[in-house]
């Protein structure tokens, strides 16, 4: 399945834009997604940390990704 990924802050610089589309297996997890992205964009591994959000909620590595989910990469936050 194809999923769209939103990027913010430094991940926008890493991906070269505010969104990208990746191909995942139908039963893919957050962990699978991170592995794929880190392969394509090794700079992700240099971040202090980063999270994945699914439908506006922080997701865990074992959570499943679905085709129509709103998926976002959340680099270290720095509001305030």
């Amino acid at each position: 399945m194809k999923v769209n990924i939103l990027a913010f802050g430094i991940t926008k610089d890493i991906f070269g834009g505010p969104a990208l589309s990746v191909d995942l297996n139908n039963d893919a997890t957050v962990s699978n997604l991170k592995y794929l992205l880190e392969g394509q964009y090794p700079q992700l591994k240099k971040l202090s940390t980063y999270m994945v959000a699914i439908n506006n909620e922080y997701a865990l590595d074992g959570d499943t990704v679905h085709e129509r989910d709103e998926i976002a990469i959340i680099p270290p936050v720095s509001g305030g």
């Binding site: 959340i74 936050v77 720095s78 509001g79």
Partner: peptide, 10 residues
């Protein structure tokens, strides 16, 4: 807020 809210500053 500084720990969890997805806002970034450059």
């Amino acid at each position: 807020l500084k720990q969890t809210v997805p806002i970034w500053k450059k």
